[in-house]
């Protein structure tokens, strides 16, 4: 299957610290892949590199066959590659519905649409997505008044509103009520299966990532340590050692 995202020998340093050292990974279209690794192993840095937050030192990042490592964040977003943030980012003083209504697909953001009103179809879609993540009752509340977990769900809905081809999710279950985690996993599966959105998920909750991802990459100290099916990675001695701090 053709990879939708292909990262080849990406290197990113901050001063003397090597955050990513020759990391290569590829995600086939339509799959759910996991990215794990101990704290500080370079997962979020890799996400930031992929979506263009900071330039990479060397290597190549291809999205749908197109080199994107020299593009800026909004340009990459408009190609259909979005990320969510570990510390959620939402528009705090706007209502939940408004948060969604401004997260429309890039095609709806052209010059002409600057003066457009949100269409009935867009409003309906926004309300449906809020229903989907369980925030429908709070749709007219200011997003900043939501709990951290609810903001995470709102951010997910915003990403879906913009109809991306691929989503990079940075710890989607962190801060979510444990009783709701199974719900969220189910929703992520539906996003993948029903909307055809490819997912790459950073996750610390091993139970979640092992159950969700079809294939897992493990980073440690900025390098790719292991990769494979969840069962294989779980029993990989190097992975266990990295998590226990013996590396």
């Amino acid at each position: 299957m053709t990879p939708i995202l292909e990262v080849t020998r990406v290197r990113k340093t901050f001063g003397g610290v090597v955050a990513n050292r020759d990391v290569s990974l590829s995600v086939p279209e339509g799959k759910i892949y996991g990215l794990i690794g101990p704290n500080g192993s370079g997962k979020t840095t890799l996400f930031s590199s992929i979506v263009g937050t900071h330039p990479i030192d060397s290597g190549s990042i291809k999205f749908r066959g197109e080199e994107v490592s020299r593009l800026r964040v909004p340009q990459i977003a408009r190609l259909g590659l979005l990320r969510t943030f570990q510390q959620t980012r939402i528009y705090g003083k706007m209502t939940c519905v408004q948060n969604l209504l401004i997260s429309v697909p890039p095609a709806a953001l052209s010059w002409r649409s600057m003066l457009a009103r949100p269409s009935a179809a867009e409003t309906k879609k926004a309300e449906d997505l809020l229903q989907f993540v369980g925030l429908h009752a709070k749709r007219h509340l200011r997003a900043g008044d939501l709990s951290f977990g609810q903001q995470k769900l709102l951010e997910l809905a915003m990403a879906l509103m913009s109809e991306p081809r691929m989503l990079l999710l940075d710890e989607p279950t962190a801060g979510i009520n444990p009783t709701l985690i199974n719900d969220l996993i189910d929703r992520l599966r539906r996003i993948n299966a029903e909307l055809g959105i490819t997912l790459l998920v950073i996750e610390h909750n091993m139970r979640v990532v092992m159950g969700l991802a079809q294939y897992i990459y493990c980073l440690a100290h900025g390098e790719l340590l292991a990769e494979g099916e969840p069962a294989a990675v779980k029993s990989d001695k190097r992975v266990i050692e990295a998590y226990l701090g013996a590396h």
Binding site: V51, R72, V73, P74, A77, R78, L82, R83, F85, R89, I90, Y91, G92, K93, M94, Q98, L101, I102, S103, V104, P106, L109, W111, S113, M114, L115, A116, R117, P118, M158, S162
Partner: peptide
């Protein structure tokens, strides 16, 4: 009342997020 208002409010609340969502922030 329209997309213009939503966009400038989004820029106020979190401009980096607005960019990450693909908004043409400079234009607005």
């Amino acid at each position: 009342g329209g997309r213009f208002g939503l966009a400038v409010n989004a820029i106020r609340d979190d401009e980096d997020k607005a960019e990450a969502m693909g908004l043409w922030t400079t234009r607005y």
